[in-house]
Amino acid sequence: MSENKIKNIFRSGAIAAEFIADSIAKHSAKKDIGAHSIFLGQVRADIINDKTVAAIEYTAYEEMALKKMQEIREAIFSKYKLTCMHVYHSLGVIKAGELCLFVFTSSPHRRAAIDACNEVVERIKKELPVWGKEVFEDETHQWKENK
């Protein structure tokens, strides 16, 4: 693994729209970017066994997850011609309708930005030790299965 400092992707609570807008705005000064691709993960109010999901409580094995995310980051930068990549994942209780994942890739051309963003999201879902507990409106809960 490279000597790059491991970036903390975790944020306490939901990811605010203002944070996302600010992240996008900061890239307007970068003249070598021709495309951005953004994925926003939002908590759904799924109905499971006649109960509605009110929130998801996210937890993680943070040290392991950050190391794994660094490996994913390096692999993605090796595979795609990216200008930059930002990943933020919520921890704690995130209510239905709120954002819990923000992946933002930038590149000189659209295909690299789009493909890299999609691959990062898929790898996060499959490889990161992050768990979600669905909290129902009646305050019961169950562990969520990643799909």
Rank of each mutant, 00 (worst) to 15 (best):
G92Y: 01
S37C: 15
I15L: 09
R73Q: 12
R11I: 09
F77C: 05
K7E: 13
Y80R: 04
E62C: 08
D32M: 08
N146W: 15
F136C: 06
I20F: 03
R110L: 08
A17Q: 15
H36A: 11
V120R: 00
I114W: 09
A55T: 02
H89D: 04
A14G: 07
A65Q: 01
E3A: 13
A45M: 06
K68H: 06
A35C: 08
I38W: 01
I24L: 13
L99R: 07
F10T: 03
S90A: 12
G92H: 05
E145I: 14
H86Q: 15
R111P: 04
E127P: 01
A96K: 05
A35Q: 03
L101N: 01
E127L: 09
K144C: 14
S23H: 10
A116C: 11
S107V: 06
I9A: 04
E57H: 14
W131K: 02
L99P: 00
A35D: 04
K95C: 07
E145F: 09
S78F: 09
D50E: 14
E127S: 09
S37F: 07
G34K: 08
F104A: 02
S78Q: 13
A16M: 13
I6D: 06
P108K: 12
E18I: 09
H86L: 14
N118P: 05
Q70G: 07
A54K: 09
E71L: 15
E74W: 05
F102A: 04
R44F: 05
V87I: 14
V93G: 01
F102I: 04
R73I: 04
K67I: 11
F10Y: 10
E3V: 11
D32C: 10
K26C: 09
K5C: 08
E62L: 07
V135D: 00
E122M: 07
G92N: 06
S106W: 01
Q70A: 15
K125M: 06
